[in-house]
Nucleic acid binder design. Structure first.
Lengths: 340, 340
DNA sequence: TGCCATATTGGGAACGTTCCCAATACAGTG
DNA sequence: CACTGTATTGGGAACGTTCCCAATATGGCA
């Protein structure tokens, strides 16, 4: 059975009805079919091992019921949880979800854009590494951005409030007496606009009159490898920072381990604050003080927004930002004099 | 521009050529086109913002150049690395890769099978949670199984050698003087066949004449939550095991943390061996002794096998198993008398 | 110049479904 | 019984591409 070439016509022939009737049975929005015909069709489907060709159906209906969720790092619990939450919500509405992993690579991202442009998906929820808004607008499918990476107002955006989250972390370090605070984040080439994180940092530094040494802005990949590189670069600095604010937890935890390996105890000799609050942040020693982002909320909200956008492609774009929340653990020293 | 309804005919009209010529330009296998026509077509494509409809093309050619990699847990570094390695290999051959996350759920897995049956993918590489081989055979697309979950010989399989890996871990514990060894793995309902891991364990236990207490076979989910549950169940046992062999590292590391929280020091009061060797296994304290599986190799081999299978759907199925390798860290105590 | 081989081009059919509309069957009502 | 309204059915067109094949243009050579 299942000779894999069976189509609606063969089913119709075996069931003794027309292809239209078979279509009414197999397509979800089927019109009325008599019980007798229904039974005959179902029997024929079973006997022939018929499977509906979604490509042909989509070509005709212009709906695929498939959504692509594109993220930069599938292995990062932050992203996988966002994706999972979005998947939950979208599947409940009858969409199937597949995930695209760009692995922080522009080439891969471009590849997924091409895939999306070819009409295979009804919608996309994506985090862009390149921040190339023109490509995204040219996609031709309803799209929701996850993460606040630009000032873009024409595309729906669901993210956490980067400025607020960054200031929360820096404020915390400042309160505990740190003055020479570094930021480790990812900047893409010199021509690109500075990341929001970096701008929030610059703003904070100038507000508080902290040293604005360019050495303190360290650009590394937001990965474990980036964390190790961060520590190598840190150790080579002429004047070492008191504290580092890291762009995500993966980076921060790798840095934490690398510091320990180098004989510096995080939370005493150097302070580290992360971003995201992934499960590992609670499991490392010392625990990582970090800013929690509402992952499930983010994923669910992105899905919700995408559903609305797919219903009404002409709707006004929205911008939804969720605040972060500081989670205190052990990776920040308290340098206040009155505590000593 | 990009009114999103532009098709090959409009491009042809603007360029002053026939649709056939446009097709020759946009489809990869295009025949010969004069430089003049090529230029005219490209200009028209650009002006109209034309994007080729992959659905229509696939319907005609019966090729989608899209592959689905289905895994049970996208957030587990083991699976995400396997997926990434497969993606690397497949993209090099011109296929695009999307990932399906089943989250250990049978319902989700069934949903992806349905998706696959509808002809959207040229091939699938998947790890089945249910082990429902009949569904997989009925998929109608070239399929490679990742992971050795059954005796199935009709489907290409790429996996690690579960029996060898399990025995390696148990042997290691045995050598170090452990005799009451528990196994924590995931069994699905009583009617299902026992997992390979479990069978290898039973075999080892009977070979060495170790206690075959059914209490020692603990079935939990292979997740962090499962690790915490494992420790709760462990603490309630009348006669506590010396050592636990855990089905994967996620489980093992969560258990390790839970033991510490309960006041038992892993590597002294209780011994733990994991499986996979994910990065976190080296970062936890104590380090997790575990069996390393060759992730990249597994993913690349699965991709390779799938490529061959897509080339020749009638080829003989193969079964490729890679051995594991013991990585010694600090989570196992040495109970040998001669050492004391 | 005439002829042949090759390069280029265009039109119709096909991929497998759903949509539209007209045709027929059926049941209920006066 | 005739009539009307609804339920069910079937056939043709359409979705947007590629494939096949025949037609035409082009260039080289005798």
């Amino acid at each position: 059975m299942a000779s894999q070439k069976v189509n609606i016509h063969e089913v119709a022939r075996l069931a003794g009805v027309s292809k239209s009737t078979v279509s009414r049975v197999v397509s979800e929005r089927g019109g009325s079919v008599s019980p007798k015909a229904l039974e005959a069709v179902n029997a024929a489907i079973k006997e022939l091992g018929y499977a509906r060709n979604a490509l042909a159906a989509s070509l005709r209906t212009q709906r695929t019921y498939l959504v692509l969720v594109m993220v930069p790092d599938i292995a990062n619990p932050f992203w996988s949880e966002v994706a999972r939450a979005a998947q939950d919500r979208l599947e409940a509405e009858g969409y199937s979800v597949v995930v695209g992993n760009t692995d922080w690579s522009e080439a891969r991202e471009a590849r997924y854009y091409e895939l999306a442009r070819s009409g295979r998906f009804d919608g996309l929820a994506l985090n862009s590494v390149t921040g190339d808004m023109e490509s995204i607008k040219g996609l031709g499918s309803p799209t929701v951005l996850i993460g606040e990476r630009s000032e873009e107002l024409e595309i729906d955006t669901v993210g956490s409030d980067t400025r607020q989250a960054t200031r929360l972390a820096l404020e915390y370090l400042y309160e505990r007496g740190h003055r020479r605070i570094a930021i480790a984040t990812s900047e893409y080439g010199t021509e690109r606009v500075l990341s929001r994180r970096r701008r929030a940092y610059d703003e904070f530094v100038s507000e508080r009159g902290l040293p604005a040494d360019p050495e303190l802005a360290i650009s590394v990949r937001l990965s474990a490898e980036g964390g190790r590189e961060l520590v190598r670069r840190f150790l080579e600095l002429r004047e070492r920072p008191d504290a580092i604010f890291c762009g995500n937890d993966i980076l921060a935890i790798a840095a934490l381990d690398a510091f320990k390996a180098a004989g510096l105890e995080p939370g005493r000799d150097v302070s580290i604050v992360g971003m995201d609050d992934i499960p590992a942040a609670a499991q490392c020693r010392p625990g990582l003080t970090t800013v929690r982002k509402p992952r499930q909320l983010l994923g669910a909200a992105a899905a919700e927004r995408l559903l609305e956008r797919m219903r009404d492609p002409e709707a006004q774009a929205e911008r939804l930002l969720f605040p972060g929340e500081l989670v205190e653990r052990g990776s920040v020293a308290d340098k206040r004099k009155d505590r000593r």
